[in-house]
Simulated scan of single mutants.
Amino acid sequence: MLSSVLRSLQSLTTHNNEHQECATPGSSTARDPRKQVLMSSTTFSGAGPSVGKRLNIDGDIPDPSHQLPALPSNLPPPNATYEHSTPPQIPKYINAYSLFLAGSIEMGAAITWQRHMAQFLHHLPLTICNPRRGHWDPDSRPQPSDANFRTQVEWELEALSNASVICFFFDVNTKSPVTMMELGLWAHSGKVIVCCGEGFWKGGNVKLVCERYGIPCVNDFAELVVEAKRMLKQKGLDAVTDEEIQRDEEWAKGIVARKARKEA
C-alpha cells in the first residue's frame, strides 16, 4: 500500500517537471495557483500578495468546498504555555507534548486549515509546529543548495521527528505530493491521524495506507479535531478530558450531518 502512494508521488513529480517547463505567465495555469502542482510543500512561488520580494502564503484563502467548519463562539482562551512555532524559529518545546500540522500548503493556495486547527487546540499546554510560515522568498528554489529551502525542510524533518502527534489534512482541491510522501514516511509511527475528504485525487491510496497501518482516518475536518484531541490524550496529555472529547464528538457529528443534508 505504501508503495502505491510513492508511485503516485513519482508520477506526479514527473508531471510537475513537465508542467513547470511549459507554464508561462498569462497561461491559465499561471493565473490559477490551485492548478499549479508543487514539487514541494515548501515552494510557495506565485501565491498570495507579495511584500517586497516576500510572498504571503498564510493569507485568507477561499474555501469553495466548505471543508472548514465555523469556529465556535465559545472557544476557550489560549493556555499560558501554549506555543505556536513556525519556521525558521526553532520550537522551544516548553510543553511535554507537541503536534505537527502536516498537510496541504500548495504554494499558499490550500485553505488555511493550519490556523483553524491551532485555534481548536490553543487552550492546551501544547506546542504546535506549523510549517506554513507567513512569508516566503519567491527567489528560493527547491534544491538542497538553496539555504532557505534547506532550512525549511530540515525544520520540518526535525519537528516531525519530535512530534507527539502528526496531524495530516489533505485539501481536496490540491495535489499535495509532499504530504503524501510524509504520510508514507510516518505511517508506521503510531502517532499519525489523517483527514482526507471525498474528492482528493489520491484519496483511495491515502485511505488504504491508513487501513494497512491502523491510522485513524476521517473525512471531515471537524472529525480531525476530535481525533487530534483523542490521540493527544492517548499519548498522555491529561489536560484533554473525556468530557471534552465527548462534547466535540457530538459537535462533529452535527457538522457532518448538516453537510450530508445539504448534499442530499
Rank of each mutant, 00 (worst) to 15 (best):
M1A: 13
S8K: 12
E18L: 05
C22Q: 08
A23M: 13
A23T: 12
G26N: 11
S27Y: 10
D32H: 14
P33R: 12
S40P: 02
S41E: 12
S45N: 06
V51C: 02
I57T: 08
S65Y: 14
Q67K: 02
A70P: 01
L75W: 10
P76Y: 13
P77L: 15
A80G: 02
T81P: 11
T86P: 01
P87R: 07
P88R: 10
I90V: 05
K92L: 14
Y93M: 05
A96T: 11
S98W: 09
L99S: 15
F100P: 00
F100H: 04
F100W: 03
S104H: 05
S104K: 00
I105L: 09
E106V: 00
E106I: 01
A109V: 06
A110C: 14
T112R: 15
W113E: 08
Q114P: 02
R115W: 14
H116E: 09
A118F: 00
Q119I: 04
H123C: 11
P125L: 05
T127N: 02
C129R: 01
N130T: 07
R132I: 06
R133P: 04
R133D: 00
H135C: 13
R141C: 10
A159N: 15
S161I: 04
N162H: 13
S164C: 03
N173K: 12
P177F: 09
P177L: 10
V178L: 10
E182Y: 03
G184M: 03
W186H: 15
A187R: 09
V192D: 00
I193S: 08
C196D: 11
G197N: 14
E198F: 08
E198P: 09
G203R: 10
G203S: 08
G204Q: 12
V209W: 07
V209Y: 04
C210F: 04
R212F: 13
R212K: 15
Y213P: 02
P216N: 08
V218Q: 02
N219R: 11
V226C: 13
A228E: 13
Q234D: 14
G236V: 11
L237Y: 11
A239N: 04
V240W: 03
E244V: 07
D248T: 08
E250A: 13
A252N: 10
A252W: 06
K259W: 05
